[in-house]
């Protein structure tokens, strides 16, 4: 298989990688960069487990070929944990037991943060809608909705920009 050289900025670090044209970004993150917090549940764009941020927008890493991400700024759960951007969401998930096996969780957190960045005052139905592309087999979703709701209200109360 022919390989192509690409450059990616992942969690603030620049990487020069040789990848096959057919390799999707989730595999590159997991296998080449050992960023195993990005999970794979279906590899056909349905479960949402591979959700990451590409140039600020949430994206399914299994639906993007690595070569398509050339030059992109990529953020994964490891980076968002490091910067502290989603610390409050992580705390709320833990306190509300909004994860059981935790396999959906990194993507769920990133998706929730995306909602709160665009809509700081979502109601429960809006939260449910926004995470409806992220499958969770364990929780039944209610604890996740509660956790996101708690953080939305806390951020409002703190008067922060989200």
């Amino acid at each position: 298989m022919d390989k192509k050289v690409i450059t990616l900025t992942v969690n603030g670090e620049s990487h020069r990688l040789e990848v096959e044209a057919r390799t999707h970004l989730a595999d590159v993150l997991r296998d080449e960069l050992a960023l195993t917090g990005t999970h794979i549940g279906c590899e056909h764009g349905v479960c949402g487990a591979c959700t990451i941020r590409v140039d600020g927008a949430i994206t399914r890493a299994c639906l993007l070929l690595a070569v398509q991400a050339e030059g992109a700024m990529i953020e994964t759960i490891e980076g968002l944990s490091e910067t502290g951007e989603i610390r409050d969401l992580q705390d709320a998930f833990r306190n509300r037991n909004a994860l059981q096996c935790g396999y959906c969780t990194p993507a769920m957190l990133i998706t929730a943060q995306d909602l709160l960045l665009h809509n700081p005052t979502p109601d429960r139905a809006t939260i449910r809608d926004h995470i409806s592309g992220n499958y969770c087999r364990c929780t039944g979703y209610q604890a996740i909705v509660d956790a996101v709701d708690t953080v939305a209200k806390a951020r409002q109360a703190a008067g922060e920009r989200p």
Partner: peptide, 19 residues
């Protein structure tokens, strides 16, 4: 009380066999 093993999972630092 919160489960003691959750912090690593919310940070994407779990070790699943697939990892």
């Amino acid at each position: 009380v919160p489960r003691p093993n959750l912090e690593r999972l919310v940070e994407g630092r779990g070790t699943y066999v697939s990892d």
